[in-house]
Amino acid sequence: MDNLGRDSAVLRPSSWRGAVLLRSEYPDASPICGGTDLMVDINFARARPSGLLDLTSVQGIDSWELTDGGRTVRIGAGVSFTTIIEKLSGVCPALAQAARTVGSPQIRNRGTVAGNLATASPAGDSHPVLMACWARVEVESVRGPRLIDIDDFFVGPKRSALAPDELIRAVLIPAATGAQQFAKVGPRNAMVIATTSFALNLDVAGRRVGTGIGSAGPTPLRARAAEQMLEEAMADRWDEPGTVDESLARRFGALVAEAASPIDDVRGSAEYRRHALAVLGRRCLTWALADLSREAAA
């Protein structure tokens, strides 16, 4: 708040408490961290907020930690995709995979998972992984903090459960206990908004299967029927997954595709997206089971 003069419209709180107070006091100022979404809208005159609430100088916001006896990773809102790739590929392998597909080095150096969430685009690269990992979003306003389950977070295209006076403080993700995979389809390897994407989490400790679908519906989606089918199929083989069963992988992929509700748009047709999701679902399961088998054999 020290840098807040009368003519100043970039608010730069140094503490989290200060950021929460300013969010409430200046509701028309847009929160900004990496700026990789917001600045595009500003540069193209699609957004004209009365000012900016810059979170990059908030103490501690760019750090991450293991909590809950090492079972959960708490990723601060200012942690960049580059940091996730460099530091968290062990505890959040699918999130690190997704982070590697974000934009370019320049974008990964600035962009954040919390920014993905705040924008709430169905194409956000983090989202399928957050769904597959049953992440929770830690938000706070002057009214107090709360945790939002990822299944309740996305309410429509670019619309989330975040209240106008709330800020995202961190994302809580259970540490991986089995195998995870993320895959994305787009016209080139870099600088691509997903045509569609898929994440799979085989949670060995919890005996659970998590999935997430990106860019194939108004919000990121969960493939519940695929999860249930695979949980039943895995019931007696979590610890010894054995060889990959081709027909199981195909059935899984088909259920993933069925869970999507894609549209035709500039990035691809609905038909192509469904087809791609069946392929991504099959591949992710094949890769993940191979990873599990390798670990079981080791």
């Binding site: 100043s8 970039v10 600045m39 900016l52 810059d54 100088s57 370019s104 150096n109």
Partner: peptide
């Protein structure tokens, strides 16, 4: 002006960024 092309790349505190996607007020 949307982070696609990289022609505005600079270093901010040693980190490679697209300067079109950083607000001037953020580099105080």
């Amino acid at each position: 002006e949307q982070g696609e092309c990289g022609s505005c790349s600079v270093h901010v505190d040693g980190v490679l960024v697209c300067s079109c996607l950083v607000a001037a007020g953020q580099v105080e």
